[in-house]
Design a protein around this nucleic acid. Structure first.
Lengths: 181, 181
DNA sequence: TATTGTTATACTCTATAACTATA
DNA sequence: TATAGTTATAGAGTATAACAATA
């Protein structure tokens, strides 16, 4: 490596990732400003709604955060009436996180707003490149998540049926005009 | 959007970006553990070494952080003898940030360690995909940085000549065996 | 003994305002 | 009046340890 090859800041992956991530947080924060926990709260809602095993540790592992963080996030979401901590009959230590109907409705609405925010963040890329970028980030994140200790996605499970049941009702509402931008 | 299309957490761009970014911070943090400020300190060093206009605000804008953060980062780097705050004869308010010889040496060494950390973060992708990902993130970050108020890269300028002068000496040292992993 | 959930603590990063010295 | 740099403060986000209840 010679002096002429002195790396500029744009070549630093950490710089680029940081800029993009902070830009995303800013855009997504506005999109879900009325949701407790902001983008993190949305991720909890999404994971709780689509994941089969809804225990707090399992959600925390999926989201890549500490289980102590999950307690705070859930406290706020419970207080807002968006999720509930149900007792797990199979393990009295665990709490089963269930998204309420209000939570399902809000989730469906915020999903569209968040998609718009994502589109804004990616707007510097050509349409084909956006999909490529999404695929690659997703691929990196999935591998990293799998590599983290104790990770399991639990896409099938006991709670999935209940969640889908509620989601069916909600989907009708949203399609009827709930999708406010 | 129907219930069957309920978005899983992997489809959330914020989730993926967060996982990847935190994974990078972890890997990069180990790589530059002996540098004040960690990966952020490395970015300051890189920007100061390759950017022409080395004022603190200009560096802060390039890095996408507040100018108050730059003060703390530079305090530690100055104390470690890696950069110096020189008076700017053209503007007595401004400080010209110059990387010392020790800073240049450390920068050259850490650059290789950081490249290894970056390679680790991207290891889930095929070689061709890694370059694609780098290009796309860089493209997104550059556009976002340019869009931010007051941004200017200043790749050419007064200090550039001095920096390259020092860098030439350092490059010889590193090539001779300074690149410790 | 290990795990779930909670609480408390501390450390980092970030955001804001106020202050000085210069322009 | 505006800008460069500093300082102080507060708010998020994260990491760690400790604890009670349960496996």
């Amino acid at each position: 490596m010679t002096a002429e090859e002195a790396t500029h800041i744009e070549a630093d992956l950490g710089w680029a990732l940081g800029i993009v991530f902070r830009g995303y947080l800013k855009a997504a924060g506005k999109a879900v400003a009325d949701l407790p926990g902001g983008p993190r709260g949305f991720q909890v809602l999404t994971a709780a709604a689509t994941s089969g095993c809804g225990s707090q540790v399992s959600l925390a592992q999926q989201l890549g955060v500490d289980r102590t963080v999950m307690t705070y996030l859930l406290d706020d979401l419970v207080q807002a009436g968006l999720v509930e901590r149900k007792a797990d009959p199979a393990d009295r230590r665990a709490r089963h996180i269930v998204v309420t109907r209000a939570g399902q409705e809000l989730l469906a609405q915020l999903r569209e707003r968040l998609l718009a925010a994502e589109a804004y963040v990616l707007s510097a890329l050509a349409p084909a490149e956006r999909e490529t970028f999404r695929t690659l980030v997703q691929q990196l994140a999935s591998e990293a998540a799998i590599a983290s200790p104790g990770f399991s996605l639990c896409s099938e499970g006991v709670a999935a049926d209940v969640a889908v049941d509620v989601a069916a009702d909600v989907a009708a509402d949203v399609a009827a005009g709930g999708a406010g931008g």
